[in-house]
Design a protein around this nucleic acid. Structure first.
Ligand SMILES: [Zn+2]
Ligand SMILES: [Zn+2]
Ligand SMILES: [Zn+2]
Ligand SMILES: [Zn+2]
Lengths: 136, 136
DNA sequence: TCGGGATGTGTTATGACATAACATAACGAA
DNA sequence: TTCGTTATGTTATGTCATAACACATCCCGA
């Protein structure tokens, strides 16, 4: 970890290490993969990873992909804003594209309003082939 | 199991038992909960449940809720049609409402088309409070 | 400066979810 | 009948996540 690259005002050492691993990966990582990547830094137990992930998610720096049981760094400059992010997961190469489209979020909010459902959060995950892979 | 109540042309005994348990529940069930519910019918191992669930999902009779690691019976008469179903999960009472809104599905297809992403499936899960619970 | 709560950390053990691998049985078409 | 396909049973293992407890650190107010 280079001290010059600070990701968030209040990241602890463990949080920063976990974030760096995720940010340096071009595919989602499971908590145990992160653990293995950080054994050299002294990590020994899953909870060290899960606790850091919990904070990073609260800060909006990391997202969990429910359909993969895996985690990704947010691809937006300041993620805390976008409530209704979505993810397109390529089933061939494993890469994930994060999007935050008002055209998708708005009709979901509308549906919730019509149904009287108090929306607290949403999960949108698409499966398929990314542009690079569909041709190959 | 009453032989009079047939759910699908080709359901085997195990598949039918699993479906009945899910269909009779008003909240999602984990595979292990289903297993426990069917021990009286001779079920002894998780694979008996998972294999039935796999087929039922392929038939469109059952959905998996990724954010809960749980399963629900499809609430639509003939589910096989709706590609982009969504689920609203109440965090208080646990009930799930399934919806299939073209107004939500269409902008997702549009996004995929613009991005060159070949859409194979989508998962939409909303968290919050259902109408009944938000007042209580 | 001395608490004392809040937060972060380390460690062990356990719980919850899902599948691999192999053997056997049932079924239907050639 | 014979053979491929599908379903099933069983044991063991793999993967993901948290409970419970102890200790350290930090900050702030008495
Ligand atoms: Zn984000
Ligand atoms: Zn790809
Ligand atoms: Zn359905
Ligand atoms: Zn409710």
């Amino acid at each position: 970890m280079t001290a010059a690259h600070v990701h968030h005002p209040d990241l602890t050492r463990n949080q920063s290490l976990v974030y760096d691993v995720l940010n340096g990966s071009d595919a989602p990582l499971s908590a145990y993969s992160i653990l293995d990547a950080l054994r050299g830094e002294g990590f020994r137990a899953p909870l060290q990873v899960y606790r850091a992930l919990e904070k990073l998610r609260a800060y909006g720096l990391v997202h969990r992909l429910e359909s993969l049981n895996a985690f990704v760094a947010c691809s937006h400059p300041d993620c805390a804003g976008h409530e209704t992010a979505g993810f397109a997961i390529c089933e061939k190469c494993g890469k994930v594209s994060e999007f935050a489209e008002e055209r998708i979020a708005a009709p979901i909010r509308d549906w919730a309003k019509r149904e009287g459902f108090v929306l607290a959060g949403s999960m949108i995950e698409l499966r398929g082939l990314c542009r690079d892979c569909r041709e190959g």
